[in-house]
Design a protein around this nucleic acid. Structure first.
Lengths: 331, 331
DNA sequence: CACGCGTTTGCACCCGGTAGCAAACACTTT
DNA sequence: AAAGTGTTTGCTACCGGGTGCAAACGCGTG
């Protein structure tokens, strides 16, 4: 396997100096048409293309963005990743996908991203406490960080989120209007659940409507199975007359699991016996078996805003965007 | 924002040369305990960690692997990506997620990955024709490439796949035994469909059982909606007596869409009026509303084999691994 | 033909590491 | 004390580009 051609090789072939070669590849550089033509011809013959590693070292720009993800159970991540990578690539950037888990925690990921000189770090649906940044292993000058699709608890790190307050207001208004009065809320992983503030606003808006009691079901994780298990546990331990009449699930995956269990295992009718509403508008929730009412996050706009911040076209300040209530027949 | 400390800075602080600093960070290098201690102390004080970019330039190893993905509709990609990133990270490698689409084709992605000096390229569920490598823009010495979860049509590029022949044999045997005799097959995107060879083997094994006629429904894409639409079209244009009695869908997402339409819109019973079987064992297929029979790919083993090839512990040769039939009640 | 000015080109030095050799050092051995 | 051996350390050269300045060039003008 032959080595890649370097600027020097092309320079020799074209009979110029390596700096002229570099100029031929630098848009707007001072070079005559003639030289440029000769260089490009020699470059094509040698199959030369600049080594981006060397360029990054010299310019201090890698055009790489680390994307931290810690929850692969939510299929909604996939369309987000699709849009994100597409938009990054349109800006000449590339996504380094970092899996945050028990073997690879936030500190290690930050350290690694920093060592690799990434231009920015996007925490997509994951975040850490502000004190984590004080970890002795971490340097004082990290790449710019952004939190996507969840609140930022980190000082000076902006977040781009769907407006939870507005979303839950619209949801509760809708449910109230439909006549439901005994609300329940199913939460996923405690840390993320708190950050999303969906539960908080849900309970709050019901209180504003004079409904003080909101049942809370803890699923602990975000997965259809966890949703099914926790609702099963709830139904088994709650008298029919005491049950909630509408269950809001923190995301569609929990909702789908719960809905399936409510109908399939307990034979209850949705929405008559118990209504269900989710969050995210995951494609399958729209399937006719589910007909899941839900709330859609403004994915494209959210990604767009993060990109604008990374490229510096927008100041790095937390942005809250409105989503859209999707009413189907589950609530 | 202060600059990162360099080996030189640490060397000055510790009163040694920069090479001694580097030795302190090179496992097994020749250095006295005393020097190492002083260097590490100075390094900690300055928050020094080696610049991996510079290291990569010198060693010709980036410890980065490009992962090409072109279909984000299949939620099954997510658990694969989770395992893949986790295993890569365990080897000190990191995944660059490249979205192949209309704006960013294979040639551009290859060019970019090559310029960034990645150590390897994994084509996950995507591939191109062998001739693409002859594209004039591409250099002659690309990084090692591997195709994951689909056949490789590229000369000299190994694939790691689930054994389609074995899988379809098990599926057809099972369906035959259950008494089905009028099989149908729903295919997704033509290019990928051909590569997966599921249709080919499905039709083939039915012929071996004496069933020569297999209806083929083309969904054109892989999505629940495409599955629903194509089966709707099929049912609307086929007399009840002529309909297939079992429909094998190329993946679970198509199957879920189809199943939902068959039951929800046409009021048919599954499996009595028409049985359905998918492929991939996507979590939601197991929900009680669907009870989808399917076939599970050996995800962990497949990822493991790719990793072993990338790290050179296994020769780069196509590997075919057996999966597992999952019988639920849809077929 | 010399001069002046704007454009092109070449150059020294830099980015932050790594490789491999040679000098410096420590410690035996004779 | 000199020689021999093994370990540490420092140095030159290099990876493949980028920056900013100065020299060289081209061309119109007096």
């Amino acid at each position: 396997m032959r080595r890649r051609a370097t600027a020097k090789n092309v320079a020799d072939a074209a009979g110029v100096s390596k700096w002229t070669v570099i100029r031929a590849f630098t848009p707007g550089a001072s070079i005559t048409e003639e030289s440029k033509r000769r260089v490009l011809q020699a470059a094509a013959a040698l199959n030369y293309s600049p080594n981006l590693l060397a360029r990054s070292l010299a310019t201090n720009l890698t055009h790489q963005v680390a994307v931290f993800v810690d929850d692969f159970a939510n299929p909604q991540k996939l369309p987000f990743l699709e849009t994100l990578t597409d938009r990054l690539q349109a800006e000449g950037l590339v996504a380094m996908l970092i899996n945050i888990n028990n073997h690879f925690d936030h500190v290690r990921a930050l350290l690694n991203a920093d060592q690799r000189q990434v231009d920015a770090i996007i925490m997509f649906g994951t975040a850490f406490r502000s004190e984590t940044l004080n970890d002795r292993r971490l340097g004082r000058s990290m790449p710019p960080m952004f939190v996507l699709a969840r609140d930022s608890q980190i000082d000076g790190v902006p977040a781009v989120v769907c407006d939870a307050e507005l979303a839950l207001k619209e949801i509760v208004d809708h449910l109230y209007e439909k006549g439901y009065r005994r609300p329940g809320f199913m939460a996923g992983a405690p840390a993320l659940s708190t950050a999303l503030r969906r539960r908080h606003h849900f309970i709050d808006f019901w209180k504003q409507k004079g409904v003080d009691e909101t049942a809370v079901i803890s699923a602990e994780r975000y997965s259809a199975q966890a949703g099914a298990e926790s609702v099963r546990h709830y139904l088994q331990n709650t008298d029919a007359k005491d049950r909630v009449d509408v269950l809001m699930c923190e995301n569609d995956i929990l909702a789908i699991g719960a809905l399936d269990e409510i109908r399939g295992q307990f034979g209850l009718r949705v929405p008559q016996d118990m209504a269900v509403i989710g969050f995210d508008n995951y494609e399958l929730g729209g399937a006719s078996v589910y007909g899941l009412s839900t709330y859609e996050q403004p994915k494209d706009e959210m990604v767009e805003v993060v990109i604008e911040m990374i490229t510096g076209r927008l100041p790095p300040e937390t942005v809250t965007l409105p989503g859209k209530l999707i009413v189907r027949n589950s609530a």
